[in-house]
Structures are given as C-alpha cells and as structure tokens.
Amino acid sequence: MPEMLKEILKNLVSKPATVNYPFVKPEPLPATRGALSWDMDRCDQCQDCERVCPSMAIKVLPEEKRVEYQPFKCLFCFLCIDNCMQQAISNSTTLTAPGYEKRVEVFEIKKQ
C-alpha cells in the first residue's frame, strides 16, 4: 500500500499552503532584517560602519559629508547597526526591492 495516499488526499481537500505573495502581503516579522537607512542628523562620520562592514558596502566620505550605501552589496548582517555609537543607522522590516540597475543610496548631511 502506498504510504503517501492519506497525506495526498488530505492535501487535495484542504486549503493550499500557498501564500499568494505579491497579491497578499503577509505582515513582516519584527526581527526581519530589511533595508538600512542613515539618520544624517546623528551621523558624525566616524567611519565605524565602514570599518566593520564585511562586504565593503558602505563608504563614508567625511569631506563630502555623505554616506554611500550599496544595497546590492550589503549582507544585512547588521554589524554596522551594532557598532554605531551614535545609533544613526536604523533598519526597517521592508525588504530591499530588486531593480534593473545596482542602485547606490546616498545619504547627505544637509547644509546649514
């Protein structure tokens, strides 16, 4: 007797396990490691994040007063968040969106 029979018939009559993803968006879990952003009011351009980044996705340019972040190089390990003394880096639970090009996100300090 084939042993899967019971399971298969059960699946056939019960609801599919599929999340109809792009049409139904489930609530993101609070711990999800999503896209990063820099709060430039807090950032003091210390380059700590650049130093710890394992994949060199962050470039801090103190002279030009900006941070260049490459989401297509980032590992989402969140070492930068853990190591930021100023707590200038924050994450969201939204995932980084795919794109036709490799974007570079630039965060600049507003000129006074």
């Binding site: 298969i8 699946n11 056939l12 599919p16 599929t18």
Partner: peptide, 10 residues
C-alpha cells in the same frame, strides 16, 4: 490537480 495534491495553489 497535481498542485493541489502537493498542497500548492497551482
């Protein structure tokens, strides 16, 4: 039918 037997939407 195959998809539903595998509890997929298909």
């Amino acid at each position: 039918l195959t998809a539903r037997m595998q509890s997929r939407m298909g």
